[in-house]
Amino acid sequence: MKKFFTFIIFIIFSTSSFSGSHHSHGHKKNKEIDHDYKIGKIKIEKPYTFFTPNGAKVSAGYMKIENYSNKQDVLQSVSNVSFADRVEIHEMTMENQVMKMRPLKKGVVIKADSELYLKPSGYHIMFIGLKEQISKGKEYKATLNFKNAGSVDIFFKAVGRNYHPDKNHHKHH
């Protein structure tokens, strides 16, 4: 039993120091870790987008953004999307059972030492004028432009509607 606990403590320490190394020094190169990405003090976890219904003209992309900096950063824009005419940063709200969606022209703030979820019924990357259907097994490239950390290329993985990132992955937390 004691050995088991020592093992657990060892795992906790080794993984925490491992993840610590990711954000202690800003890597010059954008490094893809599993399905995660890093730029400066910003880490992007598991970007995903849903398969679209037939003929859909819009879609939304989601992810978790972690800011390891002691300064806030701003996801100002998303660019370099070849599968849609336009791409915007949106916020969705629900009030009295009414859904509202608005573009965030100044982007979205990620506070210092915080994490921000882009997820259904909240913030999302909106793909407008889809040139192709989002389909199973494919990945969709985009560039995220942060005010401080700079730009990073990421891939959105296409998933089914029953996908919940927190339920499907436990690797990092």
């Binding site: 679209t52 219904p53 939304a60 969705m92 259904p120 019924s121």
Partner: peptide
């Protein structure tokens, strides 16, 4: 509406 990215397809699913 079909130009709705998340609440409509999610509700239909």
């Amino acid at each position: 509406f079909t130009h709705c990215p998340d609440v409509c397809p999610a509700s239909l699913q």
